[in-house]
Design a protein around this nucleic acid. Structure first.
Lengths: 217, 217
DNA sequence: TATAGAATAACCCTTTAGGGCTATTGTATT
DNA sequence: AATACAATAGCCCTAAAGGGTTATTCTATA
């Protein structure tokens, strides 16, 4: 049996190094390439034609979900497993609509990752139990259409919304921001609420740390 | 030659897993224990008596530098190498005074880590070339004021205040944070007010962007 | 041309934040 | 022994945030 050709995508080189050595030394895996952000992942996929992509979400320039979507536009066959260090579930549903085949949490054991790889390579999707539970909760629970609406508008933030995020992060209140942008404070408040919804954040504090961590501002 | 007993400290389990497999499979290293934060690192050092500690800086509860200081209070022999994902040099000088034996950057190759481990185990300190340059610059009189400002004013916040900043940035309200820290919501509110005053911020949104931009969290 | 989304504006409501003030306890340093 | 500060806890108050709902205008695109 030939080794599975894998593209490893993570913005931390030493994390990639660790995984490369760990996976290659024990399993039928051949890391044919590495990428440090989403754009690079798209390029390397075209160039190297891997059979499997192991990809982080939080990366500069282009995140893992967006990269997965772009890859799916030209390659329907490559398997994509998302590896994430996030403890929140903000991205799960967006990931599901991006055509990914697996979703593993940061706290997973290496053995779970290997199980996931095997299962995905055999043509079956793999989602860890927390993710599965989340999906079942939603499909047995309420507001499916509402959830669908919220999660399928995968667009990041609009220009105006980004302006608002930037000004809020600088410590200005909605009233002051309204004056700066020559609009009504009601509109600024509306923008803030929309932003929180779009990013599935608990409040604007979380929006700010998300925005900075992802280079939105 | 017997294997070097190593304690691996990082708040991301899957990073530890990768390193454990990678290092143990190739070199004379035996990972005798793992820790997920600074406090755990101190405990495990007492308990397991490792010869070498590989430790991240950015960790919850107690960071790597503070943990190193605490460890040095009761154990002068154990070698400590700091592994950091930070691209800034804010912690270098603080690390030097904490009695650490090595400092490796996130972009280092695994081979550099192995070189560092060998060198440190032979009794010599190891700092990568960027760090060495920084130290030489300092001793030849370059950027002294800059360094002084960085190291003496980098974090005017106390440990508890940093915990609060972190939790607020994750979107938790004062009430929830109080529950998480087992203290009164009044105390959390008090901490928030003190933090805003200390940093001369307009509100906590500005605190969060400051804290992230300056690597406090 | 019909539909979707961006940007605007306004109302309802409750919860949270944050300024100012006082005060106790413990610990470390001088 | 005295001083400083961290961490704790409580009160007052007003301002701000944020959830929900509705609605208009403009523009891009299917």
């Amino acid at each position: 049996m030939s080794k599975t050709k894998v593209l490893l995508v993570d913005d931390h080189k030493w994390v990639r190094q660790g995984f490369k050595l760990a996976l290659e030394s024990k399993y039928d895996i051949d890391i044919v390439g590495e990428a440090g952000d989403g754009n690079e992942a798209v390029e390397k996929t075209k160039e190297l034609m891997p059979e499997l992509i192991l990809m982080d979400i939080n990366m500069p320039n282009l995140n893992g979900i967006e990269a997965a979507k772009q890859i799916r536009e030209f390659n329907k066959d490559v398997k994509i497993i998302i590896l994430t260090m996030l403890d929140n579930e903000r991205f799960i549903f967006e990931a599901l609509t991006a055509g990914i085949n697996g979703y593993i949490y940061k706290d997973s054991e290496i053995t779970e990752l290997v199980t996931a790889i095997k299962q995905v390579m055999e043509g079956e999707d793999y989602f860890n139990k927390e993710v599965t539970k989340k999906i079942i909760d939603y499909h047995t629970g309420k507001n499916i259409s509402e959830f669908y609406q919220e999660t399928t508008q995968s667009s990041p933030l609009t220009k105006r919304e980004l302006e608002v995020v930037k000004l809020v992060s600088e410590g200005y209140t909605s009233k002051v921001i309204a004056e700066k942008l020559f609009i009504s404070p009601f509109t600024v408040v509306k923008h803030r609420k929309n932003i929180i919804k779009k990013l599935h954040a608990k409040n604007f504090n979380e929006v700010i740390s998300y925005a900075i961590a992802n280079g939105l501002i």
